[in-house]
């Protein structure tokens, strides 16, 4: 039976992703239970989620070791999502 070394990098990646997830609890706590619309909170939450998506692309999905085309394509997709999500939100606010 072949045994492989424990990959610490993947553990660190998970810890970072988990910390970013737990940051949402802190954001929610800082609002102290008052439900109020906030563009700052919404934008921050979307940016944090997209940072997590990029980390999943790069580390878990091994895009980090992929040809430059796939790296650029996935990065472009993250930017596209950011523009689309924030754009729709802010257009909805002014409509």
């Amino acid at each position: 039976m072949i045994d492989i070394k424990f990959n610490k990098r993947l553990l660190v990646v998970w810890l970072v992703l988990a910390s970013l997830t737990l940051a949402y609890l802190w954001i929610d706590h800082s609002l102290a239970g008052t439900p109020r619309a906030s563009a700052v909170i919404t934008s921050s939450v979307i940016v944090i989620a997209l940072v997590k998506v990029r980390i999943i692309f790069r580390e878990f999905m091994e895009v980090r070791q992929a040809p430059a085309l796939l790296c650029r394509l996935t990065d472009a997709w993250v930017v596209l999502m950011a523009v689309a999500l924030l754009g729709c939100y802010f257009i909805g606010r002014t409509a």
Partner: peptide, 30 residues
């Protein structure tokens, strides 16, 4: 990449309507 685009469209509609009626969405989200 295609699936991500489809979901981005869903998310875009959701955020647009959410921004238009924030009270309703906040109340339900609670």
């Amino acid at each position: 990449l295609f699936e991500t685009l489809v979901f981005t469209a869903y998310f875009g509609f959701y955020l647009f309507y959410r921004a238009r009626s924030p009270e309703l969405f906040l109340h339900s989200q609670a």
